[in-house]
């Protein structure tokens, strides 16, 4: 359902971020994208969300060639992707509820749909009681859970997580990982960039290792280094 086919990316400043990377991810898989910072993990995620175009090769999501999408079709693609960032990126002037509702408002969901769905999402991430709080009143873990609820708001098929536990302590990271597993068990495809080796070793899933822009390992049984 998601394929990288011989993808290379060279940025304008001649930095070669990705070199002939290929892999396929099936529906419902949970995949870690690991490797040192600057290895090309972020580039892969940016190519998936069509923020960047590859220099060569193809990216296919659900039979659509992402790198050939017209600008007006990119928005439609992104509605099928949920994105969670390391720095949460919640809107500080909006409440928890509003932050999640915002994602639905801007894709023109009806008021009824928003009122029905947002409480369910907040319940899923365990923040039903905090819906009137503002982001600065929440802990990092809670903020990331709001961000996760927002990423799930438009019912995407694929969840893209860019170092979702990078700013969190181990206990809180573990909470987020449990939530991601729960979502994955319900059928969500998850691609998670991380260099949290402990997490990768503890919660085993498929691991794709990227180093210097090359795919150096792709193991179904998981584990960070061995």
């Amino acid at each position: 359902m998601l394929t990288f086919d011989s993808v290379s990316k060279t940025y304008k400043n001649q930095v070669c971020a990705l070199d002939n990377v290929s892999f396929t991810i099936e529906r419902g898989e949970f995949v870690y994208l690991v490797g040192p910072s600057g290895a090309g993990k972020s580039t892969i995620l940016r190519l998936l969300t069509a923020e960047e175009k590859p220099t060569s090769g193809q990216i296919i999501i659900e039979n659509q060639v992402v790198n050939r999408l017209r600008r007006s079709r990119v928005a439609a693609l992104r509605r099928r992707l949920g994105v969670v960032f390391q720095d949460f990126r919640l809107l500080p002037q909006k409440t928890v509820y509003e932050n999640v509702a915002f994602a639905m408002q801007v894709v023109e969901a009806s008021g009824t749909a928003i009122r029905d769905r947002v409480p369910l999402l907040l319940e899923l991430v365990g923040l039903k009681d905090r819906h009137e709080s503002y982001p600065n009143q929440l802990s990092g873990g809670e903020q990331q859970r709001v961000a996760l609820a927002r990423a799930l708001a438009n019912d995407p098929g694929i969840l893209i997580c860019d170092e979702p536990t990078g700013n969190l302590d181990p206990a809180t990271s573990w909470e987020i990982m449990r939530l991601l597993s729960l979502v994955n068990e319900r059928g969500m495809t998850i691609i998670m960039a991380t260099h949290d080796s402990e997490m990768v070793n503890r919660m085993k899933h498929r691991v794709i290792v990227i180093e210097n822009g090359k795919k150096v390992r792709d193991r179904m049984e998981g584990g960070y280094l061995n």
């Binding site: 969300t49 600008r71 007006s72 928005a75 439609a76 693609l77 992104r78 509605r79 099928r80 992707l81 994105v83 990126r89 809107l91 915002f102 994602a103 801007v106 894709v107 023109e108 927002r150 708001a153 438009n154």
Partner: peptide
């Protein structure tokens, strides 16, 4: 700009923004 960025990521159309 933050809102615009989030709107882009959740798939709001350019015209909506």
């Amino acid at each position: 700009r933050q809102e615009i960025q989030i709107m882009k990521f959740v798939g709001a159309s350019d015209w909506f923004i």
